[in-house]
């Protein structure tokens, strides 16, 4: 086993453990927990069997296997950031409505 594989394995196990902890705490929904765990398992598989990426890369016409991983990672990160941004916006809206309702309920006259 190569050094980087050991390091990635340890980080991945920690990642999965963190996911289980969050899931038990109710901070992760079942969907998020499943996606989180799948992502770490995928990382472990890719680390130990790097040739798998080449199969994907060839199928999508992306050349090298690692390039495919980078491109998919960037796309995934963009998607997550977009999702987070929308979630924050929604929460902001809900907080604003709550603040307004409280003001209307507790006014002085």
């Amino acid at each position: 086993m190569l050094t980087y594989q050991i390091i990635v394995l340890i980080i991945s196990i920690l990642g999965i453990a963190l996911g289980i902890h969050r899931y038990r705490n109710d901070s992760f929904s079942t969907l998020v927990f499943s996606l989180w765990t799948l992502a770490w398992i995928a990382i472990i598989i890719i680390t130990f069997f790097p040739n798998i990426t080449t199969v994907f890369a060839l199928r999508f016409g992306l050349g090298r296997g690692l390039d495919a991983v980078y491109i998919f990672s960037i796309l995934l990160l963009f998607y997550i950031v977009f999702k987070l941004y929308n979630l924050i916006e929604q929460q902001k809206k809900r907080i604003n409505e709550l603040v307004s309702e409280l003001a209307l309920k507790n006014h002085e006259d």
Partner: peptide, 19 residues
């Protein structure tokens, strides 16, 4: 003739107008 409505946190001009 005067009434006071207070937002507990700052929302912004749009929020104030809506309230």
């Amino acid at each position: 003739n005067v009434y006071h409505y207070r937002h507990t946190i700052n929302v912004g001009l749009g929020g104030a107008i809506k309230t």
